[in-house]
Computed example of a mutant assay.
Amino acid sequence: MSLQTTAAEAVPSRERFAEEWEAWHREHEKRRADPHGFLAVTGLFWLSAEPTEIPGLPGLWSTGEEGPTVELAGDDVLLLGGTVIAGTHRFGPIAERGGITVGFDGGVVEIAKRGGRDILRPRRPDFPFLSSYTGTPSYAPDPRWRVPARFVRFVAPRPIEVGAAVDGLSHVYESPGYVEFDVDGETFRLLAFPGHAPGSLFALFTDATSGVTTYAANRTVAIDVSEDSDETVIDFNRATNLPCAYTDFATCPLPPAENHLRIEVTAGEKTPISRVQGAASAAGLVPAAGSL
Rank of each mutant, 00 (worst) to 15 (best):
A267Y: 04
T52G: 07
P122R: 08
R31L: 14
A165H: 01
D75K: 09
S138F: 06
V221I: 01
G163T: 10
P176S: 09
V265P: 04
L80T: 06
V166M: 10
R144E: 15
D76I: 06
D75P: 07
I85C: 06
G67L: 00
G59V: 00
A165W: 00
L47H: 02
N259W: 02
A140V: 01
Y246H: 13
R90M: 00
A250K: 01
C252N: 10
A156Y: 09
T240M: 09
Y173T: 12
W46H: 12
R124S: 14
G64E: 07
S131G: 05
P194L: 05
T63S: 13
E161W: 02
F154A: 11
R150P: 03
D167M: 09
R158D: 03
D248N: 13
P255S: 10
P55A: 08
W145I: 02
L204I: 12
P255Q: 12
L242W: 03
A203D: 08
S226V: 08
R146I: 01
G67H: 04
P55F: 06
A282V: 07
L120W: 02
T83D: 15
L39F: 02
R153Q: 13
D167T: 14
P35F: 03
W145E: 06
L60H: 11
K113L: 07
T251D: 14
R262Q: 12
R262N: 14
G107H: 01
Y215F: 13
I94D: 10
H171I: 02
P35W: 01
E269K: 04
V70D: 02
P143A: 10
I223M: 00
A217T: 09
E15S: 10
C252G: 12
M1G: 06
P58C: 07
P51M: 04
F205S: 05
V183S: 12
P143K: 10
A18Y: 10
I94K: 08
T232M: 01
L242Q: 15
S175F: 02
T6I: 09
I160D: 09
G163D: 11
D76P: 06
S210G: 03
D118S: 07
P148D: 02
G116I: 00
P12T: 10
V108A: 13
G290F: 01
F193N: 08
A86C: 08
D76A: 14
K113S: 15
I100V: 15
L190S: 05
T69I: 13
T42I: 00
I234S: 04
G56H: 03
L78N: 14
A279D: 14
D105T: 11
G56Q: 05
L254S: 14
P137N: 12
W145F: 10
D248F: 01
P58Q: 02
F17T: 15
G177N: 12
G98C: 09
R121L: 08
M1E: 10
